[in-house]
Amino acid sequence: MTTPPTLHLLSTDGAQARVSLEGGHLLSWQPAGAPEQLYLSPRSEFVPGKAIRGGVPVCFPQFAERGPLAKHGFARTLPWELVSQEQGRDDVLAVLRLRDNDATRAVWPHAFELELSVRVSGRTLDIELACENTGDSLMQFTTALHTYLRVRDLDAVSVEGLSGLRYFDSIKQAEALQRMDLLLPGEKGVLDLDRIYFGVKERPLVVTEDRRQVVITQQGFDDAVVWNPGPERCAKLADMPPDGWSEMLCMESATIGIPVVLQPGETWVGRQSLALL
């Protein structure tokens, strides 16, 4: 596979990440002393203008097909510019920017400025997405950080922290209530997951696989998405191997149920933090 223009972030403690300027896309996260934590499909083509499969795509200004734009909007398929890259004593930070242009205004008539900040340190990854309305009219959008976590055995994975939340099942096109605290993606009958959990806000979600735990916390994002295509849908995805579904679980910080509304000059900020225990 070809390699897109990327930034390599390496902290003094050994934590590292790779970020593609195409799509403002986080491709890799290796905490200090630990293996790769993100799934990146070996079939991603890395062609300008085409979404990358895996890592952390930025969904903006529309989530999925819940609106008139192309699926997940345009931010993940446009080139971003590097604003800064800073090396701290025990961390490293990169900031990328995307502004509106003729192409974006042709499909979404708003002036905006997005900033994506990626920080790695020790066993923690922080991703912050900020949006400023730089135009003279009200704008609204939905958004998500579409994080693909790498797993070894999906049957051994559980997610804690969703109990009591209402969710929309995008497969069944119906709402339901999560009654159990553990969600077992590999359980028979639960494959092909595509759920939007509403009102997650700042409650932590814990993804456990055997002795490995990743704690996900968010600020600014109201909702969370849990997604795995399962074997049948995965086989239909040209940019994933047929067994790719068994090696990943998407845990996405998102704001979908109630869109973000910004008046001219206002700014919204959403943050997702992942910590490997």
Rank of each mutant, 00 (worst) to 15 (best):
M1F: 04
T2K: 10
L9F: 15
T12L: 12
V19S: 05
G24I: 15
G24E: 09
H25K: 13
P31V: 03
P35R: 02
Q37G: 04
L40G: 10
V47F: 02
I52F: 09
I52L: 08
V56R: 10
K71S: 09
A75F: 11
A75I: 14
R76M: 08
T77D: 04
S84R: 06
R99D: 12
A103T: 13
R105T: 08
W108T: 15
A111R: 12
A111K: 08
E115N: 06
S121L: 08
L125S: 10
D126K: 09
E128Q: 15
A130S: 15
E132W: 00
G135S: 13
D136C: 04
S137L: 08
L145P: 04
H146S: 03
L149Q: 05
D155H: 12
A156L: 06
R166V: 10
D194H: 05
Y197R: 00
P204Y: 09
D210K: 15
R211I: 04
R211S: 13
V214H: 01
V215Q: 12
V215E: 14
I216F: 02
T217P: 03
Q218K: 09
G220I: 14
F221Q: 08
P229D: 07
G230P: 07
P231Y: 08
E232A: 14
P242T: 06
D243T: 14
I256D: 05
I256L: 05
I256Q: 03
I258K: 13
V260M: 08
Q263P: 02
Q263H: 09
V269R: 13
A275D: 02
L277T: 13
